[in-house]
């Protein structure tokens, strides 16, 4: 009888990680795209393309933490629209800007709290709850904004035109957010307990971990960050419509999955999602540069997602039963 399973060598541990796969795919995508078009390697072009997805990418970082904790939130894109609509509507009806921004952020928090209430207090599955609230938030946004677009003041427009050392502001925010959240997830007790709750919630409770508090914090953070992302989008577009960020939840999930986050919780990293966001931008920009038809682009993204999911599951099932 063999008592002890031998430890895996270090190279094996590093190589067989989903983030490694994301990284390899990213390099491959850059190489292929630069072969397709000489303009591609213009870094400022990639950065400008990234600003179009930066808001989703920022939210996807928090979503990664929510998924690791064993839950999911599909409502953030609708949350972005509703909080942006509330903000735009408030300032358009004469409320001072700082107050209007506050209203938008509070609305985001409230939406996060609503999700948290139903998932934690009522013990409902988060996938159903957030499909419900995603529809609800989008509906409320439409009631508030109608089918018109609400303009925001000129000074508020153009966050994507602000450059820090030549890097557009949304990208800077994304990188900073990834850095901070990455530190929290990998280095603090709060981060550690997110993994433990996602791996085995019952055992976490027995070990004295306040599982409900952790989930509450995550859903609130999700709501707040979505509201910030909603206002960043408003600033980039210059006006707000109810369909702001429509379908964004799928892109966010795509980023988390491509980055190797395990849909059943307990596994994943901020680094993975960070890399996956870039991968997604490089692939879609590369395809645009190469003049691929939009229909083909969509198909490629779909194939990419399926490959990522198969690879992630394969890696997890092989290395950690």
């Amino acid at each position: 009888m063999q008592e002890v399973t031998p430890a895996r060598p270090l190279w094996h541990v590093i190589l067989v990680r989903p983030e490694t796969m994301t990284f390899v795919l990213l390099i491959a995508a850059v190489v292929v795209a630069s072969q397709l078009s000489p303009y591609f390697l213009d870094i400022s072009y990639i950065l400008r393309s990234f600003t179009l997805s930066a808001e989703f990418a920022i939210v996807a970082l928090v979503l990664t933490m929510v998924i690791i904790a064993g839950e999911i939130d599909l409502s953030p894109a609708a949350n972005m629209a509703l909080s942006a609509c509330l903000f735009a509507w408030a300032q358009a009806s004469g409320i001072p800007m700082p107050v209007a921004i506050g209203i938008g952020l509070l609305a985001g928090l409230a939406m996060g709290a609503l999700n948290a209430f139903m998932v934690i207090a009522l013990q409902l599955p988060s996938i159903i709850v957030t499909i419900g609230t995603l529809t609800l938030f989008r509906g409320l946004a439409q009631i508030i904004a109608g089918d018109k677009s609400i303009r925001v003041p000129d000074w508020f427009i153009g966050i994507d035109k602000i450059l820090v050392f030549g890097i557009p502001m949304p990208v800077v925010i994304f990188v900073l957010a990834a850095f901070v959240l990455g530190l929290i997830l990998a280095g603090t007790i709060f981060g550690r307990q997110i993994y433990q709750v996602g791996t085995n919630e019952v055992a976490a409770r027995y070990a004295g971990i306040r599982t409900r508090r952790i989930k509450l914090v995550l859903f609130l953070l999700m709501g707040l960050v979505a509201a910030v992302a909603g206002m960043m989008t408003a600033s980039r577009l210059g006006s707000v419509r109810y369909d702001l960020g429509l379908g964004g939840e799928l892109q966010m999930v795509l980023m988390a999955m491509l980055g190797g986050t395990y849909i059943f919780g307990g596994r994943g990293t901020i680094l993975g999602t960070f890399l996956a966001a870039w991968l997604l931008v490089v692939v879609s920009t590369g395809m645009t540069v190469a003049n691929l038809l939009p229909a083909i682009q969509l198909t490629v993204l779909g194939v990419l997602l399926i490959v990522a999911i198969i690879a992630t599951n394969f890696i997890y099932s092989r290395t950690q039963r």
Binding site: Q193, Y195, Q196, N200, A203, A204, R205, G266, Y316
Partner: peptide, 26 residues
């Protein structure tokens, strides 16, 4: 069911109930 975190390291499993001691300043 209520003891182990199956896929996490032995180390993390052992220190799960003493967060204050392994992370004195967070």
């Amino acid at each position: 069911v209520s003891g182990i975190f199956r896929t996490l390291s032995v180390e993390q499993n052992i220190t799960a109930a003493i967060p204050g001691r392994i992370a004195p300043r967070g």
